[in-house]
Amino acid sequence: MRLSLNSRLSAISALLPALLVMLVVYIGATSWTVWISLTSSRMLPNNNFVGLRQYQILLGNDRWITSVHNIVIYGVLFVSLALLIGFLLAVAIDQRIRAEDTIRSIYLYPYSMSFVVTGLVWQWLLNPTLGIQHVLRSWGFEGATFDWIVRPETAIYCLVVAGVWQASGLVMAIMLAGLRGVDEEIWKAARVDGLPKWRVYVSIIIPMMGASFATAAVLLSTGVVRLYDLSVAMTNGGPGIASEVPAKFVMDHLFERANIGLATAAATTMLITVVAVVAPYLYWRTRKGEVR
């Protein structure tokens, strides 16, 4: 259909905000960030090109190393646990249980709450003096210790517990949609074939749900890289720097430590990581879209 000049102009005018955002915010800001990371900027940006110096410094920075170390632990545990729990929850709900709607609401409600709220609640629950540890001891388990949140080597696992609590419902919702999309007759055929239920899930259903798993995994992974609020609210990176994460490293160096060169180098590293994860996924999605 050939468009008249008038409607063509209207369409372009409607796309102007999006175009502007793309060019200025996404492309412009990203390029600037990358550029700053190649300069010696401290409090204010300068154009003194220093190559990859900032990245070198970054790699020698304890705080950054800890952050990366933490995010890897968090990422692997959070994604795998949320996928596992979310999938199990979806399978449980898919068994024609009673009060299905209520149960689903219970699993999903944490996802409607912010990371700040999530972090503060779990901070309270894990508080060793008055939280779960205290409850266990008052029940007679005198020696019970559950003080992960105040111990540097375990603080990051507390973020995992809170994160999984918040996000498993999301995985459940995605997986449940996938399970409900499975043809009823596949189940019947499997029963006639005499397959035990677990075997049907393992051998037939899970291989069929590749798309659901991919979607959930990518969604969770992008959440991992963005992890900031939870760390701030729950532990504020502590004890010490034990639960620092890259996003927080960037923010602190941008706004408190006035080292924007180092901060942008860290941000650029995050960017590269995300692109490395998302690009193959999007490529796969579009390829699949073309095939169908």
Binding site: M270, V275, V278
Partner: peptide, 22 residues
């Protein structure tokens, strides 16, 4: 344009924040 928008939706805010503040 649409494809580009989908890609950038995944990028963490930290990448844009400083230039935007400026």
């Amino acid at each position: 344009l649409f494809g580009a928008m989908m890609v950038v939706a995944f990028i963490p805010y930290q990448v844009f924040i400083y230039p935007l503040v400026r």
